[in-house]
Nucleic acid binder design. Sequence first.
DNA 1: TACGGTGATGAGACCAAGTCCCATCACTTG
DNA 2: CAAGTGATGGGACTTGGTCTCATCACCGTA
Lengths: 191, 191
Amino acid sequence: MGRWEPDARERLVRAALDLFSEQGYENTAVAQIAERAGLTKSTFFRHFRDKREVLFGGQDVLAELMTGAISGAPAEAGPLEAVEAALVATAVTFTDERRAHGPQRLVVIAGNDELRERAALKMVGFAVAMTDALKQRGVPELEAAVAAELGVLAFNHGYERWLETGGDFAEVARRTFGDVRAAVGSLERAE
Amino acid sequence: MGRWEPDARERLVRAALDLFSEQGYENTAVAQIAERAGLTKSTFFRHFRDKREVLFGGQDVLAELMTGAISGAPAEAGPLEAVEAALVATAVTFTDERRAHGPQRLVVIAGNDELRERAALKMVGFAVAMTDALKQRGVPELEAAVAAELGVLAFNHGYERWLETGGDFAEVARRTFGDVRAAVGSLERAE
DNA sequence: TACGGTGATGAGACCAAGTCCCATCACTTG
DNA sequence: CAAGTGATGGGACTTGGTCTCATCACCGTA
C-alpha cells in the first residue's frame, strides 16, 4: 500500500475542522480543504462519501460494537442491561485524541443544518442497530425500540459529559445510563 | 395574490412523488419535477428550500402544535400526560388526503439516504421542541428529554399504524402511546 | 377604461457538490 | 530492473442551489 505523505485521511479531517471553525461550514469548499491538506478534491471524495462525512468517520464501527455487545450479553441479562453493555463497549474508541477535537467538532456541527442532519441520521442508525440486536434476543419490538432509544439518549448525554469531565468513557456511560433510568422511574411515579 | 394555474405547490408535490416512485429519487432532477408540474426550476425552489423538502412540507406546523399542547396542558398534568396531549394535538393535520399518498411517501423515503436523513432531522426537531416545552413547565432536563423521546417514538409508530388502519389519528396516537408506556413498564420489571 | 402596484413566475448566469474516467507517480515484488 | 498495485492528480460533466432581472396576471383606484 504505497503512499508518500502518510495519514492523508487524518490531514483532511484536521484541515476540514480548522477551516469550518475559521470560516464556517458553508463558506468552505471541498477543494479548499483538500488544498490545505496538500491534496486534491478527487482524493477527498475517495476518502469520504461527501463533504459532511469528514466529521463523522468511524461511526459505523460504533454501531458494530453496540450490536456485538448486545448479541454477546449473557442470556439472563435484560434489555436494559444489554443496552448498557452496548454503551460500555464503545468506550474503546473514545481516545484522548478524539477528546481533543471533540468540543470543536460539536460546535461546528451545532452551527449547521446539514451537519445536524447527518448527526441525526447517525443516531437513528444506532437506534435501529440496537433495536434489531435486541429483537434477535427475543425482546418484543416495542420494548426493544424503547430500550434502544434510551440507550441513544444516554450515549449522547454521556458523550457531552465525557468531553467536559474526561476520564473513562465506560464509567461515564454507565453513570449517564443510570441517570436516564432514574428519570424513567420518576416519570412513571409522577402520575 | 394573483396567480393563473392554482395550487402550484401541490402540483409540485404530486409530480415529485410520482417521479420518485417511477424512477427513483436520485434519478429525478428538480427541473424534471417542475416540468411535469408545468413550472420551472426557479419556481420549485421558491416553494421548497431544497429537493428533499418537497416530501416534508408542513412539519414545522406539527412542532408548533406539539409545543402549544404541552404549554397549554393543565398544571396538574405530568410530563407523560403533556406529551400525550401533544400527540393528540397533531391529529388535525392528519387528513384523508394526507393518508392517501402516505404509504407511497414512506416507500420513497425508505429508499433513499438523503431522505431518511431529512426525516431523522425532523424527528429530532420534534424531540427538541417537546423537551424545551416540558422544561418550561419545570420538568427536569433528563426527564423532559426521555418523555419527549418516548413521544417521538409513539408518533412514528402511530403514524404507520394510522396509515394501515385509518380512523382518527388522535385515537391511534393515544393507543400507541399507551403501548409505549406499557413497554417502558415491562422493561423496568424485567430486572 | 386606463393606470400603477403587487405577487408569482420565467429565464439564465453562476458556483459548488459529487461522479467518472484516465493518466501518473511512489512503492513493492519477483 | 521490469511489471504490478494502490493512491493520487486532473479535468470534463451533471445537478443542486443561489441570485438577479424581466415578465405576466390580477387587483384597486381614478
